[in-house]
């Protein structure tokens, strides 16, 4: 039986048009454009000249871009396997509704509504060798000041710590899923004499598998595209120690190397997709609804 044509077809098209125009202009067109531009020689003006995959060869041979890929991989691993486990730990504690859990949940998420610019400036100040709080603490216990963000040995770790300690977003997702697990399961386990820890490992974590996979996938995808807080705190320095693909893309664009910047964009998109597909292959499917929820 074929569906009858909706009598409102014209009105439906009318209502969809604004979203489709914007989506095409800012999602579909940029996507296609980036792939096309990556195969050309082009400096932003004049015609694009097709040169095949030369930009990719150049990029992958560029030590700075390789460092950027490495740093993004480190970001992805830190986000997926440090940030998400910490978020899960806090979520499991809050799911048992300790005193003040709602207020704590609200406060843990607070930094997520503050701009990356503001947080990056505050953390730059905290790390500052002259007046920063961390060095003031070092001074109190008689240690020499350290230039955390200015020293290639500590810069990457310093920006990553700033990023992974803000667990709010993943904590909220995991907490909501943990609280939807039926209470009866825990009551039954209690009667059987299972300790809290056993309950978490035997009931909560297996029940949360899909949500955790989703959280790890999203965290790693965000790690692969990490740009903003590092750009704001170190600009990718010192000596490219903290650079990422996004920062390299931005620098190339600033130097009018548009086609190479586009190739960097293609690699960024492909590696991000690879992470999402790879995680799902390795850990199984996540929770598609939660993924769409951003």
């Amino acid at each position: 039986m074929r569906k009858r044509r909706n009598p409102n077809a014209v009105k439906i098209a009318l209502f969809l048009t604004p979203v489709l125009v914007l989506f095409t202009a800012f999602f579909v067109y940029p996507f296609v454009f980036t792939f096309v531009a990556s195969l050309t020689r082009w400096r932003g003006i004049g015609a694009m000249r097709f040169i095949g995959f030369a930009n990719f060869g150049k990029l992958l041979g560029d030590p700075t871009f390789r460092l950027a890929i490495r740093n993004n991989v480190i970001w992805a691993l830190a986000s997926g396997f440090v940030q998400v486990p910490l978020a899960a730990l806090v979520a499991l504690i809050l799911a048992r509704e300790p005193r003040g859990w709602k207020a704590l949940r609200t406060i843990y998420f607070l930094p997520n509504v503050i701009s990356t610019v503001a947080l990056a400036m505050v953390w730059s100040a905290l790390y500052n060798p002259q007046y920063g709080a961390f060095n003031a603490i070092r001074g109190l216990i008689g240690l020499a000041p350290r230039n955390y963000l200015g020293d290639p040995a500590t810069a990457l770790v310093s920006v990553i710590i700033q990023g992974v300690l803000y667990i709010g977003y993943f904590m909220i997702i995991i907490l909501a899923a943990a609280m939807s697990i039926p209470r009866e399961l825990y009551e039954a386990a209690e009667i059987d004499g299972a300790t809290t820890l056993q309950q978490e490992f035997r009931i909560t974590i297996p029940m949360l598998r899909g949500t955790l996979v989703t959280a790890i996938t999203l965290a790693m995808a965000y790690g692969m595209r990490h740009f903003e807080s590092t750009y704001l705190m170190t600009g990718g320095g010192p000596a490219y120690a903290t650079t990422t693909m996004g920062i390299d893309l931005f620098n190339k664009m600033d130097a009018l190397r548009y086609s190479e910047a586009s190739a960097a964009g293609v690699i960024l998109i492909l590696l991000g997709t690879l992470v999402i597909v790879g995680i799902r292959k390795a850990l199984g499917k996540g929770d598609p609804m939660a993924e769409a929820g951003q």
Partner: peptide
Amino acid sequence: WRGRDAVRTALEAGVLVPIIAFMVPYFTL
């Protein structure tokens, strides 16, 4: 209407796109 679910899925899949990869096309556009 026909294609509704496909349109919805495509629009929602936009959250997975890394917008910073689009600096060049956004600027040129």
